[in-house]
Amino acid sequence: MKKKILVVDDEEDIRKSVKMILEVNGYEVFTAIDGDDLLNKIGQVTPDLILLDIMMPGPPVQEIIKQIQNIKIAFMSVVRISDARKRGLCSQDNIVDFFQKPFNVTDLIDRIELILADKKYID
């Protein structure tokens, strides 16, 4: 069965691009445009991974992720964030990676593959 990934970003072109990349690499992809939409979508399907933009209009990401405990989350950010702050942001166990935008396509695929190969989080 195909692994499911939910891409959350307020920019349509980014959602589209990431969806294209992931679909070619054999994932089933859903998209959400902000935090509320994200919560709404995970009510309908349970993805294996959420790719979440760290800065979006609407409810703050820090609040949203508190409500998601058993799905892996990987952040995406256009702002460069220091290692120290990254550690602070990865306070929850289910936050697994941090992608710097603009990302390298091959690197993105490799890392996602690695994250989803890890059996530990699969229920």
Binding site: D13, I21, V105
Partner: peptide, 22 residues
Amino acid sequence: SHELRSPMTPMKAQLQMLEEGY
């Protein structure tokens, strides 16, 4: 600079996809 950097993400992603033969 932030505003300029945002469009770089989809742009570079699409370019790389083209390059990689997607």
